[in-house]
Write a protein that binds this DNA or RNA. Structure first.
Length: 139
DNA sequence: GCCAACGTTGGC
DNA sequence: GCCAACGTTGGC
């Protein structure tokens, strides 16, 4: 199972809103970047991803699951981009901040550190388990 | 609010 | 198909 990181500005779409959407989940629409698109196309149902708040907070606040694989984004007039559906799984008891991530040698190769503008990113198994423990889960 | 980094657009 | 110009993102 692959792991991912979804970025969102809380003022546009927050973790709280994701939680309020419940098990039905929501469309992760609005992605207009080919790198992010390729990552979404690689997602399978059941894959997990971190939910990261950009600009405000700048921290990983929760975990989402992919519940629908890549399909066309009806909000994209050009028809070139698609989206997946995700639902909230659980919150991190201790959100992991960008500041902490940047100072941790084990996480120095994270895409979040090296290409912070990419809105949907892959996360390695090592990074995933490391951050889960830092966040207070499974550890 | 500023600005660097990056992606996209469009003229050639 | 190249590349300059432009717009957007997101950390600071």
């Amino acid at each position: 199972m692959a792991h991912w990181l979804f970025k969102s500005e809380p003022s546009t779409w927050s973790w709280q809103q994701q939680c309020d959407a419940g098990d039905k989940g929501t469309h992760w629409n609005g992605v207009r970047n080919h790198g992010a698109k390729l990552n979404m196309m690689a997602m399978k149902i059941g894959d997990r991803g971190f939910f990261y708040h950009s600009n405000e907070g700048k921290e990983i606040v929760g975990i989402v699951a992919v519940i629908k694989e890549y399909y066309p984004d009806h909000t994209d007039a050009s028809g070139r981009f698609g989206m997946v559906d995700v639902k909230a799984v659980e919150a991190l008891p201790h959100p992991v901040t960008l500041e902490v991530i940047k100072t941790d040698p084990a996480l120095k190769d994270m895409v979040l550190v090296n290409n912070s503008r990419l809105s949907v990113q892959p996360v390695t198994e090592a990074e995933w388990t490391h951050i889960l423990r830092m966040g207070g889960l499974k550890g």
